[in-house]
C-alpha cells in the first residue's frame, strides 16, 4: 500500500489530534493571556510571578513532588532489583501492577480510614503508648499516601531496564573481582539509568498535579499546582489565572522531561 492510501484511515485520527490535542492547549494558552473581559494582557503572568503566594505554592509543590520521587525511588530500586532476581518474576510483577488497577479514589479512601483520629493506625499507636496523634490532614500523610500511590510506577520502568541488562556484563565484573556491591554500583546501576529516568518522569510530573489527594488526605494544607488549577477553574471561576498556572505546569513538565531525557544516542535499528 502506498502512502496515499493511508490518508482516508487518518481522517478521524487527524481530526482528533487537531480538536483534542492541539486546540485545547492552544485555548488554554489564549485563556491565560486574557483577562475576564477577553482583553489581551500579561497580567495573569505578572500576578503569578509577583505575588509571593503563587511562587511559594509552586516551590512547595515542586518540593513535595521531589520528596515523593526520592522516597519512591529509594524503595523501588531494591524492590525492582529483587524482583528481577526471583523465580517467576513475571508473576510477581503482575502483583506490582495489580494495585494500579484499583481505583485511585478507593486507595485514598482506605487511608482516610487508616489514618483518622480513631483509625487503625492510631489505635495501634495508642496501644504502644504514643497515640492518638493527628495523622490525617498533615503534610506527612500527603507524602505517605502520594508515595504509596506512585510506587508501582517507579518500580515498573526500573524493573524493565534491569531485565534488559545483559547478564554477561555483571558476570564479567564478578570474574574480574568486583564485589557484589561494586558490580551493582559500577555496572548494573549505570546500565539501568534509563529506567530510573523514566520512573522519575512517571512519578514527578503526576505528583505535581495531584489534586484530590491534597483535599482528601492533605486537608487543604498542601496546595499543589494541580490543586491551584482545580480551585481556579471550578471554585473561584478565574479561568485566566487557572490557565496561567496550567501553562506553568506544562512548562515544568517540559523541563522535567528535558532534564531526565535519554542522553545517549540510540544505536538501535
Amino acid at each position: 500500500m502506498k502512502s496515499k492510501q493511508s490518508i482516508p484511515y487518518m481522517v478521524p485520527y487527524v481530526l482528533w489530534i487537531v480538536l483534542f490535542v492541539i486546540l485545547p492547549l492552544l485555548l488554554m494558552l489564549i485563556q491565560s493571556l486574557q483577562d475576564i473581559h477577553q482583553q489581551w494582557t500579561l497580567a495573569n503572568y505578572a500576578n503569578f510571578f509577583r505575588s509571593g503566594t503563587y511562587l511559594k505554592m509552586t516551590f512547595n509543590s515542586i518540593f513535595y513532588a521531589f520528596l515523593v520521587t526520592v522516597i519512591t525511588l529509594s524503595i523501588s530500586y531494591p524492590m525492582a532489583y529483587g524482583l528481577s532476581r526471583v523465580k517467576n518474576s513475571q508473576f510477581w510483577l503482575l502483583l506490582v501492577i495489580l494495585p494500579t488497577w484499583v481505583n485511585l479514589l478507593l486507595k485514598a479512601y482506605a487511608f482516610i480510614g487508616l489514618l483518622s483520629q480513631t483509625g487503625t493506625v492510631n489505635q495501634f499507636l495508642g496501644f504502644i503508648g504514643i497515640g492518638p496523634q493527628q495523622l490525617l490532614f498533615t503534610d506527612t500523610s500527603f507524602i505517605l499516601v502520594a508515595s504509596y500511590i506512585e510506587l508501582p510506577f517507579m518500580i515498573l520502568p526500573i524493573f524493565n531496564s534491569l531485565v534488559e541488562v545483559n547478564p554477561s556484563l555483571p558476570n564479567a565484573a564478578r570474574d574480574l573481582g568486583a564485589t557484589p556491591w561494586q558490580t551493582l554500583r559500577r555496572v548494573i546501576f549505570p546500565l539501568t539509568l534509563g529506567g530510573v529516568r523514566a520512573g522519575v518522569q512517571a512519578v514527578f510530573i503526576p505528583t505535581l498535579s495531584l489534586f484530590m489527594l491534597t483535599r482528601l488526605i492533605g486537608g487543604n494544607r498542601v496546595i499543589t499546582l494541580g490543586t491551584a488549577i482545580e480551585e481556579h477553574f471550578l471554585i473561584t471561576q478565574n479561568w485566566g489565572m487557572g490557565s496561567t498556572i496550567g501553562i506553568i505546569l506544562v512548562v515544568a513538565m517540559g523541563i522535567t522531561m528535558y532534564v531526565t531525557r535519554d542522553r545517549k544516542k540510540r544505536g538501535k535499528r
Binding site: 485545547p24 485555548l27 488554554m28 503526576p206 499546582l225 494541580g226 477553574f233 490557565s243
Partner: peptide, 20 residues
C-alpha cells in the same frame, strides 16, 4: 502529537477540555 495527551497531567487535560 499522540504522546502529548499521554504525558499531560490529568488536570491539564481536564481544564483544557473544559475550556474547549
Amino acid at each position: 502529537l499522540n504522546n502529548i495527551l499521554m504525558v499531560s497531567p490529568d488536570v491539564i487535560i481536564g481544564a483544557s477540555f473544559l475550556i474547549l
